[in-house]
C-alpha cells in the first residue's frame, strides 16, 4: 500500500531566512491588536461586565428584526440594549445593564427580564426564549479577575517548566510566543466584535495548549540537534530542526484543524466564536512556534555552549520517563 505523504521527504525550506520580516510583521500585528483593544475595546459578555442577557430565536422568521427590537426594548425605560445576531440569522442576544440597585434587590432584575420577554412574546408570537443570564457586578468582576489570573498563571507556570527542562532562553521564547498568540486572538475579537465571554477564556487556554505543544516539539528537536551537531551554525541548526519536524507539524495541525473546521461549519451556534477562536489559534500557534519561539533563540544567543554534556538535568529525566513508557532500547 502506498502511504500518503503530506510533506516530501527531501523538504528543506529556509524558514529562518524570513525571521526578521516575520518578527517585524508580528510586532506590527501585536501593536495593532493592543491598539484595537485599547481604542475599540472588546465586546464583553455579561460574564465580565455584569448585566442581563436574553437569548431569543424567532422560529418563524428568516431574520430577527434587530432594528425594531432596539426600538421596542429601548422604549421600556431600562436604557439602550445591545442587540446582536449570533449564529443563525433569526437568533439574537439582547444585553442590558442591570437596573440601578439590582445588586441589593434582585427583584428589579427579574422585573426587567419579565418585562422584556413578555414584550417580545406579545410583539412576536413565534419567539422562543432560549435563555436568560443575569450576572451582578460583583460576580462579573470576580469572574474576570479569576479568568485573567488563571490565564497568566498558566502562561507563567508552563514557561517556568520549560526554563527548567531546557534553558532560560527557551522559557523566554515559549512565553513570548504565548503572549504573541494571546495578543493576536484578543485583536481578532476586538476587530470582529465577537462576544468575549468565559468560553473564550477556555478557547484561549486551548490555544495556549496547542501552541505550547508545537513549541515544545520543535524545542525538543533543537535540544537534540544542539547536542548532536555542536559545530553547526545556529540558523542552520534551527532550520534543520524545523524541517525535520515539519511533516509532524503539518500532520498534527491538519488533524486538529479538521474537527475545528467542522465545528465552525456545523457546530452549535452558541460556540461559533469559541470555535473560530480555536481555529485561529491553531494557525497562529503553529506559525509562532516556527517564527517566534525558534528565532528568539538566536537573538538570545543560544548556541553550542548550551546543553553541554555535563548538564545532567536536561535529558536524563525524560529518558527515565521514556523507559517508564516501556521503551528500553
Amino acid at each position: 500500500m502506498k502511504l500518503l505523504k503530506l510533506v516530501r521527504d527531501d523538504t528543506n525550506i529556509d524558514f529562518l531566512k524570513w525571521r526578521v520580516w516575520a518578527f517585524a510583521i508580528s510586532l506590527v500585528l501585536m501593536a495593532t491588536s493592543v491598539g484595537l483593544v485599547a481604542t475599540k475595546g472588546l465586546n464583553f459578555g455579561v460574564d465580565f461586565i455584569g448585566g442581563q442577557m436574553i437569548r431569543a430565536t424567532f422560529t418563524q422568521s428568516a431574520t430577527a428584526p434587530v432594528t425594531e427590537l432596539r426600538e421596542t426594548v429601548g422604549s421600556l425605560g431600562y436604557g439602550d440594549p445591545t442587540i446582536q445576531r449570533f449564529g443563525a440569522e433569526n437568533q439574537v442576544s439582547i444585553r442590558m445593564k442591570l437596573p440601578e440597585g439590582a445588586d441589593k434587590n434582585p427583584e428589579l432584575a427579574n422585573a426587567m427580564a419579565e418585562k422584556i420577554t413578555s414584550k417580545l412574546k406579545s410583539d412576536h408570537p413565534d419567539v422562543r426564549i432560549d435563555g436568560v443570564d443575569s450576572v451582578s457586578g460583583k460576580v462579573s468582576e470576580e469572574l474576570f479577575g479569576k479568568g485573567i489570573l488563571a490565564l497568566l498563571a498558566a502562561m507563567a507556570g508552563v514557561s517556568i517548566y520549560i526554563w527548567f527542562r531546557f534553558e532560560w532562553q527557551f522559557g523566554v521564547g515559549a512565553i513570548w510566543s504565548l503572549v504573541h498568540d494571546v495578543t493576536l486572538t484578543f485583536g481578532l475579537f476586538s476587530l470582529t466584535g465577537w462576544e468575549f465571554d468565559l468560553n473564550i477564556i477556555a478557547a484561549l487556554l486551548t490555544i495556549i495548549g496547542y501552541s505550547l505543544n508545537d513549541t515544545v516539539v520543535i524545542y525538543d528537536r533543537i535540544r537534540e540537534n544542539l547536542m548532536k551537531f555542536r559545530k553547526m551554525e545556529m540558523a542552520s541548526l534551527l532550520n534543520l530542526s524545523v524541517n525535520e519536524t515539519l511533516s509532524r507539524t503539518v500532520m498534527t495541525s491538519v488533524s486538529i484543524s479538521l474537527p475545528l473546521i467542522v465545528l465552525v461549519l456545523f457546530g452549535p451556534d452558541v460556540i461559533f466564536g469559541f470555535s473560530m477562536a480555536m481555529a485561529f489559534g491553531i494557525v497562529v500557534g503553529t506559525y509562532s512556534s516556527i517564527y517566534q519561539a525558534a528565532p528568539i533563540l538566536i537573538w538570545l544567543k543560544v548556541g553550542s555552549h548550551s546543553f553541554v554534556p555535563t548538564d545532567e538535568g536536561s535529558g536524563s529525566m525524560a529518558e527515565r520517563i521514556g523507559e517508564d513508557f516501556g521503551a528500553q532500547p
Binding site: 479568568g147 498563571a153 505550547l212 505543544n213 516539539v217 524545542y219
Partner: peptide
C-alpha cells in the same frame, strides 16, 4: 517519548493552575 512527556507535562501544569485559579 521525550517531547511527548514535555508537552503533556506543560499541559498538566496548566491544568492544575487553571483548576486552582479559575472559576
Amino acid at each position: 517519548s521525550r517531547a511527548i512527556f514535555d508537552a503533556n507535562s506543560t499541559n498538566v501544569i496548566a491544568a492544575v493552575l487553571l483548576f486552582i485559579f479559575g472559576s
